[in-house]
């Protein structure tokens, strides 16, 4: 099966005033589909930058990034947004739900972006809320939900459109260990059910224990840079 993510000689340099800081240095990486993959490394190692490139919200300074068969360097900003809307789901450390929308509306939001008809949208949203155990909280706003419930809404929102890849940046960092464990179990279950590729950036050893593939990054370089070697 061809990789769902392929990075070739990717470099990313940030300019801080006159100083150039290399966040990624010559990354070559392939991630197989339908896997639970982890990007691990110390703070500042470059894992979030790598996740941003895979998520098509950032572009490399050098090298190529191919996601779901699409070279992202060739796409315009609008085309990238369209690509993200259809193919990539995000789960953020701080949940990042839209505060003025209810749980139902937050989950429904990605379906509006892909122009799904209302009836299908409603069915999928309700099914997704049911899948994450929040059917009863559908009308509640994020500030009326607990941290764990918010992250469940975020997971439902990331998965509702059936994306090829779900990217999660430290999804358990703001949760207590029991809730974090429950969230990991939930993600593992829905990943298995939906055959979606999950890619995490994490420090959480409990989360790492569920990994199908671990990619270790240090100082902007992969520890074992051989494509697919970490599988």
């Amino acid at each position: 099966m061809p990789p769902v993510v392929r990075l070739t000689h990717v470099e990313k340099t940030y300019k801080a005033e006159a100083i150039e800081v290399a966040a990624l240095r010559g990354i070559d990486l392939e991630i197989s589909p339908n896997r639970f993959s982890m990007l691990i490394g110390a703070s500042g190692s470059g894992k979030t930058t790598l996740l941003n490139l895979i998520g098509c919200i950032d572009t490399p300074t050098r090298g190529t990034v191919e996601v779901a068969g699409q070279q992202i360097g060739t796409l315009s900003d609008d085309a990238l947004a369209e690509f993200r809307a259809r193919n990539i789901g995000f789960i953020f450390q701080n949940f990042s739900l839209v505060p003025v929308l209810s749980a139902y509306e937050n989950v429904e939001y990605p379906l509006l972006l892909v122009g799904m008809p209302a009836a299908e949208r409603r069915d999928r949203t309700l099914a997704m809320l049911e899948a994450v155990g929040l059917a009863k909280q559908a009308k509640q706003r994020p500030n009326e939900l607990s941290g764990g419930q918010r992250q469940r809404v975020a997971i439902a929102r990331a998965l509702v459109k059936g994306p090829q890849i779900v990217l999660a940046d430290e999804p358990t960092a703001n949760l207590d260990s029991a809730t974090g464990a429950a969230i990991i179990d939930l993600m593992r279950r829905v990943q298995a059910e939906s055959n979606t590729t999950f890619i995490f950036a994490t420090h959480d050893p409990h989360l790492m224990s569920h990994a199908d593939q671990i990619v270790t990054i240090r100082d902007g370089m992969l520890i074992d840079p051989t494509p697919g070697a970490a599988a």
């Binding site: 998520g55 609008d78 809307a85 995000f90 939001y109």
Partner: peptide, 15 residues
């Protein structure tokens, strides 16, 4: 700003 980043990541265009 953070909310703008989130919904842009989800696929909302600049427009």
């Amino acid at each position: 700003t953070s909310e703008i980043g989130t919904i842009r990541a989800m696929g909302v265009k600049r427009g």
